[in-house]
């Protein structure tokens, strides 16, 4: 209970399998960062976890309720999708911001209009404009407003800061944290701007080629992941029995990203250099191409 569970989620588009049996549990009252490369399956996973699209196999439960086609479960979730307006005024682009927000006000049972009004003011958003006339950053603002004002227990953001300027990004993080502190809602934020948001993620999920390869507390992950370089034999000794990523050999020297055991420490010696890594570097080491 008090969790959102994805169990064995498989998603196929024709013969192309995008998600390969994803198992993940999100606990209530945490901010998760969902990090993955383009095409890793982040949006697909979120759209299935929110009950917007069906999985090919597997199921999603929220607080013990099946999410698919179940209004009681859907009422607990908001996935404010990234708006891609490509068809001008003929599609969703023809809607005015205020019309889109009106739909959100009607559909989300706990919608908080005061949050909507505050964000419109903070972002200086013109709600009379059509979605097709908005810049990418402004479209992100609209999705942020809907997600935060929805007051849904589980709220998913897909690239919320894409196109936002520094001031708007700062406003978003500030209001998100305020809302989190006040409501204890669960937020999942899918983003490529990792370092900027790293501090607010209590846990991170790394999604690589349709698999969750890591789910861990952000501080613990950053605390136990180091970049080790130096004499090849010494680095090999350190690597022995440990999870290593992105191993590079140049002549007699070797460098690798090493995940230490919790509480384990590694110090610089004459033969090796140990450097701390930030979340982005860890992600690149784990999901980037092997050297």
């Amino acid at each position: 209970m008090n969790t959102l569970e994805c169990k064995g989620i498989v998603k196929k588009f024709g013969s192309n399998e995008v998600l390969h049996g994803v198992d993940v549990t999100l606990e209530k009252g945490k901010i998760y960062g969902l990090i993955g490369r383009n095409g890793a399956g982040k949006t697909t996973l979120l759209s299935i976890a929110s009950g917007q699209n069906p999985a090919t196999a597997g199921e999603v439960d929220v607080d013990g309720l099946k999410v698919w086609d179940n209004q009681d479960a859907l009422d607990k979730i908001c996935f404010s999708r990234e708006l891609n307006i490509t068809a001008g005024n003929t599609g969703i682009g023809g809607l005015k911001v205020k019309e889109y927000l009106k739909a959100a006000r009607t559909y989300f049972p706990g919608y908080d209009k005061s949050i909507e009004e505050r964000l419109i003011k903070e972002f200086e958003l013109d709600i009379k404009k059509r979605l097709s006339k908005l810049s990418k950053g402004m479209l992100s603002m609209v999705t942020i407003i809907v997600a935060l004002a929805s007051k849904s227990e589980y709220t998913f953001f897909d690239e919320p800061v894409a196109g936002l300027d520094v001031v708007a990004r700062d406003t978003f993080y500030k209001i998100l944290l305020e809302e989190f502190a006040e409501s204890g809602r669960t937020f999942v934020i899918s983003t490529h701007i990792i370092e900027e948001a790293a501090d607010i993620f209590e846990e991170v999920l790394f999604l690589d080629k349709g698999n969750i390869i890591l789910k861990e507390n952000t501080q613990e992950l950053v605390g136990r992941t180091v970049h080790v370089s130096g004499v090849s034999e010494e680095v090999d000794k350190i690597m022995e029995g440990k999870k290593t990523y992105h191993v590079e050999t140049i002549g007699r020297s070797k460098a690798a990203t090493v995940m230490l055991e919790p509480g384990e420490e590694l110090r610089n010696t004459a033969d090796i250099t140990v450097q701390p890594m930030n979340l982005q570097q860890i992600f690149v080491a784990m999901c980037g191409k092997e050297a």
């Binding site: 009950g51 969703i92 739909a103 849904s152």
Partner: peptide, 17 residues
């Protein structure tokens, strides 16, 4: 069906409803 229906589903409505 092509414009507003997807919006309602993305706002956590059941499809059939």
């Amino acid at each position: 069906i092509t414009v507003m229906f997807p919006v309602t589903v993305s706002m956590s409505s059941r499809r059939r409803t």
